[in-house]
C-alpha cells in the first residue's frame, strides 16, 4: 500500500505527535516536533548522533516527560492515559531490554505479565515467537549467554508478544551481523504487512530506504523535512537522485 493510498483511506493515525518539546538545562533537545504514523505505515526518523531522535522516542513511550506538546497512541494521551496508550505500544531501545539471569521464556513471561496478557495465550505465543525467530534451541540458556543478534531478536519477541499496534524502535539494527539484520528486517516487513505501524530511528539512510514509507529528518531537535522517499529523491539538490544525497544535504 502506498503512502497516498493510506492517506486517502482516512484511517485514524496510530500515533499523533503534536509540538513536542524537551530541554535539558539550556540545551533544547527536542523543539516543537510534530508528526503522525498511520496504521500499517513505517516512519523513519533520520538524524545525526545527538539530533534528538532518542529523546523524541522516549517521550512517546512515557520514559521521559515532555516540557510541552502531546503524544497520542491509538487516541490515548501518553501522559494522561498512559496505561491505555502503552497497552498498544512496544518500545525497543538500541540496547535490548533483557535480564541477564533470565531464560528467554522467563523473560517473555515477565513481559506478558507487565502487559497483563492472559498467561495461557502468552505461553503459546511466546513459544511460537521463539520458534519463528530461531531461538527455540536457546530457550534454556540465560540471556547473558546469547549473542548480540540473538539478544536483539529476543527483544523483538518481547516487543511482539503482546501484539502491539505500534512498534517504536530505536536503531533496531545496530550491532547486528548481515544475516541477523536481514532477518530482523524481514520480521519488520511482515509486521507492516499485518497492519502494524512502526516508528524507527536510524542514522543509516539505507535502512530507512529499505523499510520506511516516509522519512522525517531531524536536526538539532527540529524536524527540517518530511515526506515520502520519492519526494526526497525528487527534491534533492544533487543530480544523482539518491536518497542519501538528499538526506545529507539536510543533515
Amino acid at each position: 500500500m502506498t503512502y497516498s493510498t493510506m492517506r486517502n483511506t482516512k484511517k485514524r493515525a496510530v500515533l499523533e505527535v503534536d509540538a513536542l518539546e524537551k530541554s535539558y538545562g539550556t540545551i533544547q533537545a527536542v523543539n516543537r516536533v510534530s508528526f503522525d504514523v498511520l496504521p500499517g505505515e513505517c516512519l523513519a526518523l533520520l538524524g545525526a548522533n545527538g539530533a534528538g531522535k532518542t529523546t523524541t522516542l522516549q517521550m512517546l513511550c512515557g520514559v521521559l516527560a515532555p516540557d510541552a506538546g502531546t503524544a497520542r497512541i491509538d487516541g490515548y494521551d501518553v501522559q494522561k492515559e498512559s496505561r491505555r496508550a502503552k497497552a498498544a505500544l512496544a518500545y525497543l531501545p538500541d540496547e535490548p531490554l533483557l535480564y541477564d539471569k533470565l531464560r528467554p521464556l522467563e523473560y517473555l513471561q515477565f513481559v506478558s505479565a507487565l502487559w497483563r496478557m492472559d498467561m495461557g495465550r502468552a505461553a503459546d505465543r511466546s513459544e511460537r515467537l521463539l520458534a519463528e525467530m530461531g531461538l527455540w534451541d536457546k530457550r534454556d540458556s540465560y540471556c547473558e549467554t546469547l549473542s548480540r543478534g540473538m539478544r536483539q531478536k529476543l527483544a523483538v519477541c518481547g516487543a511482539l508478544v503482546h501484539e502491539p499496534r505500534l512498534l517504536v524502535l530505536d536503531e533496531p539494527l545496530t550491532g547486528l551481523d548481515v544475516k541477523a539484520a536481514h532477518e530482523v528486517k524481514e520480521i519488520l516487513r511482515g509486521l507492516l504487512r499485518s497492519g502494524r505501524s512502526i516508528l524507527l530511528t536510524t542514522h543509516i539512510v539505507d535502512i530507512a530506504e529499505q523499510l520506511a514509507d516516509r522519512i522525517a529528518v531531524i536536526r538539532a531537535g527540529s524536524i527540517v523535512k518530511s515526506g515520502t522517499i520519492e519526494h526526497f529523491k525528487s527534491s534533492t539538490p544533487e543530480e544523482d537522485g539518491k536518497l542519501e544525497s538528499a538526506v545529507i544535504s539536510l543533515w
Binding site: 513511550c61 512515557g62 502487559w115
Partner: peptide, 10 residues
C-alpha cells in the same frame, strides 16, 4: 525502561 514503557509503570 521496559517497566516504565509498560502499562504497569505506575
Amino acid at each position: 525502561t521496559l517497566m516504565v514503557a509498560s502499562p504497569s509503570a505506575v
